Structures are given as C-alpha cells and as structure tokens.
Amino acid sequence: MKKVLVPILLFVACSWLSSCDLDDDSPNFYFAALNVVEADVPESFEFGETYDIEVTYQRPNSCTFFEGFDVTRSDQTDRDVVVIGSVLVDEDAACTQEVTEVVATLKFHVIYTGEYHFRFYAGEDENEEPIYLEYTVPVNPEPTN
C-alpha cells in the first residue's frame, strides 16, 4: 500500500509547488460603451410579441469587439440601451484606427401595454454629458374576443 500511496502524495506535492501564477494584474482588455448611430424600431408593437431591433453603432477601431447590450429599465416601459464592446490593450496587436458602422440585433419582448420609451446611448457632448437617441413605440391593444 505504501508503494502506491507515496508516489501519489509525491505527485500531489509537486503539483502544488510547480503551479503557475496566472494573476499578473494586467488585463488584456476592458469594456467600453459604444456610440449608437441609429436604431431601427418598428412603428408599433404587438403585445406578447418579440421583435428584432437593428442597432447601428460605431466601432472605433479594429481592436474593439461587440459584446452585447446593456438594457436597463428606468420605469415600467422605459429602457436605456447601451452597446457594450471589449477593447484589446495588447501592445503587440496592430489596431487600425478606422471608425466603422456595424449593425447588431437587439431582441426585445413586449410584456406591457402602453408606450415603450427607448434611449440609446450615442456618446457624450462637449461637457461630457451623455447623449441619447430617443424613440417612442406604442403597443397595439390586445384584441378582445
């Protein structure tokens, strides 16, 4: 039994002593809000339906990648939408500084009646105050049987 147990314990001890440290405290990316140029919202919603809202945003360089949407509810039918990107900070990466417009799809499910108010983050003004593109979309009433 000792002949089996000693090699196993020796292997475990060596594994602990030779483990590598992955915490070098220098992340190779960070998250950033990307500016929305336009959102293609429908003229009206149907209650209970899901819609694809095409959102055009600016990709500031080739080292910025789309990660998704941050949608916050400020009231029952008010939504603030921010496009989130990850930006690489690797010094070895060759990033072109060309601004391109890219389209991403936001899936939105209508769960309330009334009007939905959307505010899409579009950047900051000269005073570093946020700018929003605002859209109001009414919800058609539920059909009565």
Results as ranks from 00 to 15, higher is better:
141 P>E: 07
111 I>D: 15
47 F>C: 04
45 F>E: 06
129 E>Q: 11
36 V>N: 03
141 P>Q: 05
96 T>A: 09
53 I>L: 07
30 Y>Q: 05
27 P>W: 05
50 T>F: 05
133 L>H: 07
23 D>P: 03
87 V>E: 14
87 V>R: 11
1 M>T: 10
107 K>L: 13
75 D>A: 15
44 S>H: 09
6 V>M: 05
130 P>S: 00
69 F>N: 04
143 P>G: 08
67 E>W: 05
121 Y>L: 08
1 M>I: 08
106 L>T: 00
119 R>Q: 09
13 A>I: 07
4 V>Y: 12
120 F>P: 03
75 D>G: 09
111 I>F: 13
81 V>Y: 14
16 W>L: 14
125 D>F: 12
91 E>W: 10
131 I>H: 07
1 M>A: 14
79 R>N: 00
142 E>I: 15
82 V>W: 13
116 Y>S: 03
78 D>V: 03
10 L>N: 08
21 D>I: 07
34 L>Y: 01
57 Y>G: 03
69 F>P: 08
11 F>A: 12
127 N>H: 12
45 F>T: 01
50 T>L: 07
8 I>C: 11
55 V>P: 04
84 I>F: 10
45 F>I: 00
42 P>L: 06
36 V>D: 05
70 D>M: 15
77 T>G: 03
108 F>S: 02
56 T>M: 11
121 Y>H: 10
7 P>Q: 02
101 E>R: 05
68 G>W: 03
83 V>C: 10
141 P>F: 01
14 C>M: 12
60 P>H: 06
48 G>N: 09
5 L>C: 08
79 R>D: 00
33 A>W: 11
18 S>Q: 13
143 P>M: 05
120 F>R: 03
54 E>T: 06
55 V>F: 11
109 H>R: 14
31 F>Y: 15
105 T>L: 12
115 E>R: 08
143 P>V: 11
134 E>V: 04
128 E>M: 06
62 S>T: 07
85 G>P: 02
52 D>V: 02
138 P>E: 07
34 L>A: 09
24 D>G: 00
113 T>P: 07
118 F>Q: 01
